[in-house]
Design a protein around this nucleic acid. Structure first.
Lengths: 259, 259
DNA sequence: TCAATAATCTCTCTTAATGAGATTTTATGT
DNA sequence: ACATAAAATCTCATTAAGAGAGATTATTGA
C-alpha cells in the first residue's frame, strides 16, 4: 500500500495492491475493511478488475489474481529489452558454470529479478523471478550501488546502515563508501551467503545509455564449487556480460533515436 | 479491446488493453489516437499506471509494460492452485518422457498456458506460457470441449467449424460431436501437428469440483519419438494426471468450505 | 427444494473527472 | 553549455459520473 489513493482511478489500482506474498486470497468483506470502501463501490471495482482478467473469483474462494496477468507477463517478456538482451548471456553463464544466472532490475528502493536460468537440478536460489528484494543485501544490490553517484548513494546507505554492518561492509558511511569503491574498481561484487546460506553471489551492473546503472547480472553458485580463483574468473565473465548487455541496450536506444 | 469502456475506471483499464503481441511499445500520441482520449486525460491515466508500476517509459522510448507485472505474476504463481497442484505432475511427465508438459487454463473463448516444463534441450512448442490460443485447434482445446455439455458446445463448434474441418474433426456439427464423443470415451485427446508441425499433442481435462472442465494437462512431444502404443501410454498417464489434479483442486475447495 | 450468503440495483447527492488551451518541464542537437 | 523542439503538466470552468445507504435479486450449499 503505497500512498493514500485520492481519486477513483488510484482507488481502483489500490485493490491490486492488497495482494501480497502474505495474503494471496481476499474476500470482498476483508477488502472493504482494509481499503475502507463501501460495498457497492468495492464490487464495482472488483467487477471491472475481474472483467479485465486481472482478478478472478471462484465460488467459496475469495478473489485471487487473474489470468490476464499471465498474458501481460508474456508480453512483458517479449518487450523488455533487458530480458531479451540478457537471455543469451544467462544461457552462456549457465552452460559454463553449474549455477543459476539472473537478470535483476533496479526499481525504486528495491531490486527485482526479471529473468533467470539454472544449470543445476535443484536451484538453491531463494531469489525467484518476480520477488522484490531490498537493495541493501547481497552482491546484486552492491554491484548497483557501487556505481551510483555519491549524492544518491549516501541517503541509501543511511537508511540501510544496519544491513551493511551485518554483512561486514563497514560500520560507518565512510567505510561502506570505501568498500563500494573497491567493488567499483573490480567491476563486480561478491557476497558469501548473504541472501542464501552457503551460496555465493557474483554480480555486475548493467548501464542504461552508458550512464547510471539500471540492472545487474548475477551468478549464484554453491560455495562448495568455488574458491578465490574461480570466483574471480566468474566475476570477470559476469562483468563482461554486464557491459555487453549495456552496449546492446545503448545500441537499441540509438536505433530508436535515429530512425 | 473488449467492449467500449463507458466509465473512467474501464477507460483506465483500456490503456493496458492496447498492449499486444503486435504492438508492445506505444507513444502517448498513438494511444490518444486509438483510445480517443484527450491529452491531459491520457497523461493522467499513464501517470497512475506508471506509478503503480504497470507501465514504464524511458526517454526516447514509448510506454511499455512495467515491472509490477512481473511481481504480480510471481504472486499469481504462488496463489494459483491449478499451477501449484499441477507442478508435480509436470515434473513427473517430463522426467518420464522427452517432452514438454503444460498446464493450460480455459478462459473465455480461449486457452492460456499457465505453466510448462520441458525435458528437451530446445523445446519445440510454439505455445509458451502466457500466450492465449484459440480453443478450436489442438489437443488441449479438444480435451476440454469433449467434456462440455452439448448446449455449450454447439455454439462453440458453429463459430469454429472451419478450423474443425481443417484438422479432420468432421465437416458437420454432428461429425464433430461424434469425434468429441470418442475423445470423451478415451479420456484424452491427441493432435498430430495441428499447432506445431511435427509435434504431437496429448491432452486431458482438469475439472473443477468434479463438474465442468476448467483446464487441461498436455504433453507435446516430437512425432518421431512416438507411435500408436506410446501415444496411448502417454495418454493414460496424462489422463491420470488430469484427474489427480482435479481431485486435488476439489479437496482444496472442500477445505475452504468446511473451515 | 429452501435458507443463507453473495452480488447487484435504485436513486439521490455531490464530488470529482474532463478537456481546450496555456505553461512548464524535459530532452535533443549544435 | 545553450537554444529549440517536444513532452508532460497545469488552470479552471463545465458537467458528467462515482459514492453510498438500504433494498433487492442471484447464487450456492445443505
Amino acid at each position: 500500500m503505497t500512498t493514500k489513493a485520492i481519486n477513483s482511478l488510484e482507488r481502483l489500482q489500490a485493490v491490486l495492491e492488497v495482494f501480497s506474498e502474505d495474503r494471496l486470497e481476499w474476500t470482498p468483506e476483508e477488502m472493504m475493511e482494509v481499503l475502507g470502501y463501501s460495498r457497492p463501490t468495492l464490487y464495482r471495482y472488483l467487477k471491472i478488475l475481474k472483467s479485465a482478467g486481472l482478478l478472478t473469483s471462484m465460488p467459496n474462494t475469495g478473489f485471487t489474481l487473474g489470468p490476464k496477468i499471465v498474458e501481460l507477463d508474456y508480453l512483458l517478456r517479449k518487450s523488455d529489452t533487458l530480458i531479451l538482451n540478457g537471455a543469451p548471456h544467462l544461457e552462456n553463464l549457465t552452460s559454463r558454470y553449474s549455477c543459476t544466472a539472473l537478470v535483476v532490475r533496479w526499481y525504486g528502493e528495491k531490486i527485482l529479478c526479471v529473468d533467470s536460468r539454472s544449470s543445476v537440478k535443484n536451484p538453491v536460489s531463494s531469489y525467484p523471478r518476480g520477488r522484490p528484494m531490498p537493495l541493501s543485501r547481497g552482491a546484486i544490490g552492491r554491484s548497483i550501488m557501487a556505481f551510483l553517484p555519491k549524492r544518491h548513494l549516501v541517503p541509501l546507505i543511511e537508511r540501510a546502515i544496519a544491513d551493511m554492518k551485518a554483512v561486514g561492509l563497514g560500520s560507518t558511511i565512510e567505510e561502506v563508501l570505501e568498500s563500494l569503491k573497491r567493488v567499483k574498481k573490480a567491476g563486480f561484487a561478491v557476497a558469501y551467503g548473504e541472501v542464501t546460506p552457503g551460496v555465493v553471489g557474483i554480480a555486475a551492473p548493467v548501464f542504461d545509455a552508458g550512464r547510471s546503472p539500471i540492472a545487474s547480472v548475477c551468478v549464484t553458485i554453491s560455495g562448495s564449487l568455488v574458491n578465490g580463483t574461480t570466483i574471480d574468473e566468474i566475476g570477470q565473465h559476469v562483468r563482461r556480460s554486464g557491459s555487453e548487455i549495456s552496449a546492446a541496450l545503448a545500441s537499441h536506444r540509438h536505433q530508436a533515436t535515429t530512425q
